[in-house]
Simulated assay, not measured.
Amino acid sequence: MNGVELFLLGRVLMKIGEDALPEPPGGAGRYAGSARMVLIVASDVAGHPETAVGEIAARTGLPQSQVSTAVARLKEAGAVVTTTDPTDRRRALVSPASTVSDRLAQVRASSIEPALAATLGTDDPSRLAAVTTALEQLSREFLTER
């Protein structure tokens, strides 16, 4: 595998992930590209609790305005909470919510299997299980704290 193949694989995996997410509330249809932004911010906040929007922007490379929008969406969904920074009362600190909202529980419980089957063009249980196992291994290798 070379860098281009890895990049293309990453894009396919992102598409599968987006397709696996449950429909947004209110019948709004599928998520727009902003879903990626929200997921990136949520992931960063989970790894860096009590962090300022500017710090999230610096770590993720997203514009601060997009991070603020993502934080507002996550707060509305009950996935994060904000508090005032005691050292600089002008800043808000963002942390994961202590309880899981119904919406977050729904997203976390969603299965990748239908999206994976559609991308692979098969619903063969053994093939889906093999690919899922490989993806779980990659997740453990790259997404767990070291």
Rank of each mutant, 00 (worst) to 15 (best):
A72I: 07
A72G: 12
A72Y: 14
R73K: 07
R73F: 13
R73A: 13
L74H: 00
L74N: 09
L74W: 08
K75Q: 13
K75E: 15
E76D: 15
E76S: 15
E76K: 15
E76T: 14
A77Q: 08
A77I: 08
A77C: 00
A77R: 03
G78I: 02
G78S: 00
G78D: 04
G78L: 08
A79P: 02
A79K: 07
A79S: 13
A79M: 12
V80A: 07
V80W: 08
V80R: 00
T82C: 14
T82K: 00
T82E: 12
T83G: 04
T83F: 10
D85K: 03
D85W: 10
D85V: 00
P86N: 05
P86A: 06
P86I: 02
P86C: 02
T87W: 10
T87E: 14
D88H: 05
D88A: 09
D88Q: 01
D88V: 08
D88K: 02
R89M: 12
R89A: 15
R90W: 09
R90S: 13
R90P: 01
R90D: 12
R91A: 07
R91K: 14
R91M: 05
A92C: 08
A92G: 10
L93E: 08
L93Q: 09
L93T: 00
V94I: 15
V94E: 06
V94P: 04
V94F: 07
V94K: 07
S95T: 10
S95C: 03
S95G: 00
S95M: 06
S95P: 10
S95V: 07
S95H: 02
S95R: 10
P96Y: 10
P96V: 07
P96F: 11
P96H: 05
A97G: 01
A97C: 06
A97F: 08
A97S: 14
S98D: 11
S98Q: 01
S98E: 12
T99N: 04
T99G: 08
T99M: 13
T99H: 12
T99F: 10
T99Y: 08
V100N: 01
V100I: 15
S101D: 03
D102H: 14
D102L: 05
D102K: 09
D102T: 15
D102G: 13
R103N: 01
R103P: 01
R103Y: 07
R103A: 06
R103H: 07
L104W: 13
L104F: 05
L104T: 04
A105F: 06
A105P: 09
Q106R: 15
Q106Y: 05
Q106A: 15
Q106N: 13
V107H: 06
V107Q: 04
R108D: 10
R108G: 03
R108I: 04
R108Q: 13
A109G: 05
A109P: 06
A109K: 03
S110N: 04
S110D: 01
S110G: 11
S111I: 03
S111Y: 00
I112R: 11
E113V: 14
E113H: 14
E113D: 12
E113Y: 13
